[in-house]
Design a protein around this nucleic acid. Structure first.
Lengths: 202, 202
DNA sequence: CAAACGGTTCGACGGCTGTCGAAGTGTTCC
DNA sequence: GGAACACTTCGACAGCCGTCGAACCGTTTG
């Protein structure tokens, strides 16, 4: 399924976890509407996408976190060669389906795994509630830009949600890119013990 | 690369992390030697396999843990449909490149993530030494049989090595399957607090 | 040295599938 | 009601690529 360039482009365009119309996906992939329609049908039949009708439009999104993780894992294989310019701006912070990825995601994950840290408690993340959800609490994606793990799963999703609610991170229109607000810089520095210079990489 | 059935079969046959000759891989994939040769060349060019000459034979193996993880992540996508009979025996315990996967891998991972456990200390795993290695200490694969995470990365490899050294697990010839020895059953039950009935699933 | 064997290269065949034009269905908007 | 629009289906074309037979190279074995 992912071997075809058009389908790959569509799936990559949906890697932010949001929905897109068939027409927009056709534009993303650079093919006609008919071609896009056949591809989208195949992806839905393969349980990789789901759709939702809204008026005369059809909005598609990834079927689940497992699809996103597979794409991310595949991306790590091709990446040793230089990153394309378009991907350059995704290096620092982006969303990977429903959680945080990129240098920031990897750095926060490393701090989170250090024994003795109290970040989750400080953030008021209710682990017990998350564990009761059916999806795995903890999972790692291998970051395709950093080639190191970042937190995914229910915990990863809850953390990104919190960051957005607190206005520490903001989503960029039509992109997976996330920007760190000034409030976010000070909050991340404080909670995760990151040097202020870290954010100069963005 | 993985979209072709022959190449997929070859890569799957190498998922145990060991090496196989070109001829054996041709048999695994059910194609002629010429066809296998072209596929293997492509896989090497794509940095997914590496090879090593030995006499008039050529032995291939996976290029790294990232390849194995991508394959494992992709496998989770198609698996909702019933498992092929050949895969049935891999459900309980198998090696995934260099670490433990399957029901046992998932169960041990869950115990390992419970706060307050002392398993790593009891096993005498030297986390400091592992951290100094270049590869990430901690990573998760999403298990394609269980659809839940299991420990990979340097820690996952060190754990499997320890289990083998202790003769708790034994590799099955020409297969990814791992069998739990009777010493292993009692050791896992004790260290990870698993009920003895757990091993009846095997 | 000759035979056997593992692997590779070349060339030709054949099938699969991605592509778009054209036409059709259902929805929205004026 | 009619025009514009989003999406789908059908059909035909074209190109890509997996496949194997045949021939070739290098190593091993008797």
């Amino acid at each position: 399924m992912l071997a075809d360039p058009s389908r790959a482009a569509m799936v990559l365009a949906l890697m932010d976890g949001r929905s897109r119309s068939a027409k927009k996906l056709a534009l993303d992939a650079g093919v006609s509407a008919q071609t896009a329609s056949t591809h989208l049908r195949k992806l839905v039949d393969a349980n990789m996408l789901v759709w939702q009708g809204e008026g005369r439009s059809k909005y598609f999104r990834l079927a689940g976190a497992d699809v996103a993780q597979a794409v991310e894992a595949l991306s790590t294989l091709d990446v040793p060669r230089a990153l394309p310019a378009a991907a350059r701006e995704l290096r620092f912070a982006r969303c990977c389906y429903d959680h945080l990825a990129g240098r920031l995601g990897v750095a926060l994950t490393e701090r989170l795994l250090q024994p003795g840290n109290t970040v989750l408690r400080d953030l008021g993340i209710d682990l017990a509630a998350l564990e009761s959800s059916r999806r795995p609490l903890f999972r790692c994606c291998t970051d395709w830009t950093e080639r190191r793990p970042h937190v995914a799963g229910a915990l990863g999703a809850a953390l990104l949600q919190r960051y957005k609610d607190e206005r520490w991170l903001a989503a960029v229109q039509e992109s997976r890119k996330l920007v760190v607000t000034s409030a976010g810089k000070s909050a991340f520095s404080r909670l995760f013990d990151l040097p202020p210079a870290f954010f100069a990489q963005d």
